[in-house]
Amino acid sequence: MYRKEEQPLPPPEKFELPFEGKLSPNNRWVIMAELIPWDDFEEEYAKLFSAEKGAPAKLFRMALGTLIIKEKLGTSDRETIEQIRENPYLEYFIGLNCYQQEPPLESSMLVHFRKRIDGELINKINKKIVKREIDKSDKEVKKKDCLQ
């Protein structure tokens, strides 16, 4: 049986969020953001740009993060930007400091990101992530052995 809501819905700006304005450290995007060595590749990415030509480049985290979101969600370039605009976890993942309602970039930027971030760079990033996780695991095993 259909039951009418007891209270009318609030306007969007009064809608209460369950995470009280804080992102959960257990969210998949927060966890993945911690795994990726963004800063280790910023300089390499920056070398692809000319200081004299064009608008300032987007940061590496925004470029790679946006491409990861697109691939993980299986969305078009435009839909990827909409997803980012609507989701504070995705905005955090691409390196924004706070939630913003306006899109952080145009969907046409993804074409440029794909040209600059090639398979070779992705492989370097993956190797660095794996090496760091292996090193971390080795340290935990050694620490555990010392405690026994």
Rank of each mutant, 00 (worst) to 15 (best):
E43N: 13
C98Q: 12
F113Q: 06
L48R: 14
E82N: 12
E13G: 02
I117V: 09
L59M: 12
K136T: 04
K70Q: 15
T75C: 10
K22T: 02
Q101T: 08
Y45H: 10
L96G: 00
L67Q: 05
T80W: 08
A57L: 03
K136E: 09
A57P: 07
P103K: 05
E52D: 14
I69F: 03
R61W: 06
K128I: 01
M62E: 12
G95Y: 02
N26K: 13
Y2A: 13
R28K: 14
A46Q: 10
Y92M: 01
C146M: 11
Y2V: 08
C146T: 04
N26Y: 02
E5M: 05
L105W: 06
A57R: 15
N126I: 13
P88I: 07
L96M: 13
I94D: 02
P88F: 03
G21L: 03
D77N: 12
Q83W: 14
L105A: 00
E6R: 07
E5D: 03
S107Q: 11
Q148S: 02
K143H: 10
K124D: 06
L64I: 05
N97T: 10
I122E: 11
S50P: 04
R61H: 06
L64V: 01
R132H: 11
I68C: 03
W29I: 09
E79R: 15
K58Y: 15
A55K: 15
E133Y: 08
P56N: 09
A57M: 14
G74D: 01
I94F: 08
Y99R: 09
I134C: 14
I69W: 01
F41G: 06
G21F: 00
I69S: 02
M32N: 01
R3G: 02
F113D: 04
V130Y: 09
E86Q: 10
P104T: 08
K128Y: 08
I122L: 15
P37D: 07
S24G: 04
N97L: 10
F49R: 11
S24T: 05
I31V: 15
L48F: 01
G74F: 07
Y45K: 06
W38V: 01
N27D: 14
D40V: 13
E106M: 09
E140L: 12
R116F: 03
L121T: 13
E44A: 08
I69D: 02
Y45V: 06
E5A: 10
F49T: 03
E13N: 08
K22A: 07
T75Q: 14
L96K: 11
I134R: 14
L110N: 08
E82W: 13
L105E: 00
I84K: 14
K70H: 14
Q101P: 08
E140G: 07
D145P: 01
L59W: 06
S76T: 15
C146F: 12
P10Y: 09
E106P: 00
D145Y: 07
I117A: 09
I81F: 04
K144S: 02
W29C: 02
D77M: 09
K143G: 15
K72D: 01
F113A: 04
S108D: 00
R132Q: 11
L17N: 05
E86H: 11
Q148P: 00
P103M: 03
S76H: 13
S24W: 00
K22H: 11
K115G: 04
